[in-house]
Structures are given as C-alpha cells and as structure tokens.
C-alpha cells in the first residue's frame, strides 16, 4: 500500500526554567494509506506533542513530516485533529457545527451533508441541539461527525474517548470501526488504553517515557470484528503492557 505519512527524525524541546526540556526525541514512522495506528505510552510522555506536530499545529525543532510527498508546515482540513477536551462550538447547534468546515457548497447542500453525517454517527433528531443539551458521548459523536463531514484524509485522535465511561467508550469504538469500514480514513489514535488500541488498530506503536521515542511496534493480525477476550488479543495485550513496564504478575493473569 501507498505511504500516506512519513515522519522523519522528529525532535522537539520546550523551554522550561531549567533550560530546554526534550519532549520528542528522534521519532521516525511510516504510515500507509488507510492504516489505523494506535500510539500508546505513559502519560506525559509527549504523545500529544507528537500528534500536534503531525497535524501541523506545532513546528518540530528538527526532522520533517511528509504527507502525500509534501512537507507539512501548517494544519489544514486534510487532517483533522480530535482532541481530548473536545472542541464542539457550544454557541452553534449540532447542525451548524457540522456545517462549519464545509466551504464552497450551497446552503441546502451543506445542510443535507451535515444531516447525513449526523445520521451516520447516530445524532438524528439532535441536529438543532446545543452542546450543553448533549451527553458526553453525543458530544464526541458531534466532534467525530464534524471531522468526517470534510472528508479528511487523516484523522488525528488524541484520547478521544478517555473522558467517557467504559460502556460509552466501547460503543464509540464500534461506531468508529463501522464508519472507518465505509470511509477508509488514515487514522492515528493516541490512547493509554491498550485494549482500545488492540480493538481498533492495525499497528500499535509503543512510546517510551519522555523524551519520547518509539520503543516497539506491534502488528495486530486479528480479523475484524475482534474479540478482545480471544487468546491472541489477550496475549498481545500482556506483551504490550509488559513493554510499557507493567510486570506480568501485576496483570493478575
């Protein structure tokens, strides 16, 4: 398959009181078109910084991000970032949020496209609602739909479901898989949940503590729909967790 994203020797430090603090150190990664990559690592390891650089929001100190053979220097609608805190505009309705990124369409078309995606993520009937009238799960759906509307080639997802309860998080994962099966976006997902990574990703990239480096990469050779209770999935989970420094006896299995 064609290469979509090529990350080459990426480095980033932030200024602190004690001088420069290296956050990302020499990360190189190749992502194929349509591939789903999960990035897992300890909290505060620089995962978000890495993703922000890939989405074009932060400039690296050294190294480069090449998307479709072109150097990425700033964010654009080909790669939409879905952040942990969420950024659904609270002053717009669900429909207005979904229409936000649509340029160059006539208004009736915009409405039709927005309503179509609202339907896809299961928000039918809530098109005229405001953020404060929605539950946490519905907010995430709105955010996801708003990204999908502009048909982004890449979805950058920074712990999108971590604020949801376990049941809603699982439901959102299944929704995401269902949507991705239809519209094959290249997807990068940051998560601290190894099960989530195994459930969703084609490859799981394990990152080291700060300054972050790629510590290990695991293929997930399991057919969808995946059963997390399967032997394969469980073994992979234990392997990834021990790579993250969780000892086997702590896993209780």
């Amino acid at each position: 398959m064609r290469t979509k994203i090529e990350v080459r020797a990426l480095k980033k430090s932030f200024e602190s009181d004690k001088g420069p603090l290296p956050v990302v150190e020499d990360v190189s990664l190749t992502v194929r078109d349509g591939e789903f990559i999960a990035l897992v690592g300890p909290s505060g390891c620089g995962k978000s910084t890495l993703m922000n650089m890939m989405a074009g929001f932060i400039q690296p100190d050294a190294g480069s991000i090449i998307i479709d053979g072109m150097l990425r220097t700033r964010p654009d609608s080909r790669g939409i970032l879905i952040s942990q805190q969420g950024s659904v505009f609270p002053w717009l309705t669900v429909r207005e949020n979904l229409m936000f990124g649509l340029n160059g369409h006539a208004l009736p078309d915009k409405r039709a496209i927005a309503d179509h995606y609202a339907d896809i993520v299961g928000l039918k009937g809530f098109e005229d609602s405001y953020a404060h009238e929605l539950s946490g799960g519905m907010l995430k759906r709105t955010e996801l739909a708003r990204a999908l509307v502009v048909k982004p080639e890449i979805l950058f997802m920074d712990e999108p479901f971590s604020a949801l309860d376990a049941l809603m998080s699982l439901r959102m994962r299944n929704e995401l898989l269902r949507i991705l099966a239809k519209e094959r976006h290249t997807t990068l997902l940051i998560t601290h949940d190894v099960e989530e990574a195994i459930h969703l990703a084609d490859r799981v990239v394990v990152l080291s503590p700060r300054p972050t480096r790629i510590q290990a990469v695991f293929d997930v050779p399991i057919q969808h729909p995946r059963r997390l209770s399967s032997r394969e999935a469980q073994e992979l989970r234990v392997t990834i967790l021990s790579e993250l420094g969780v000892a086997r006896e702590e896993l209780g299995s």
Binding site: A55, F57, P75, D76, S77, I80, L81, S83, Q85, G86, S87, F89, W91, L92, E96, F100, G101, N103, V150
Partner: peptide, 27 residues
Amino acid sequence: KRYLRAAENFGVSRRTLFRQVVIPAVL
C-alpha cells in the same frame, strides 16, 4: 484556544472565523 485551533484546522475563511467563532464566543 481549542476553539480557535479547531477553526484553524478546518481552514475556514477569516469571515467565517469571525462570524462563527470569535463574535459568538465574545457575545
């Protein structure tokens, strides 16, 4: 910042940025 970043991400025009993000956020 998250709202301004989202607007930046979608690459909307300055007009849309003001009409749909800045003005309603400040109102």
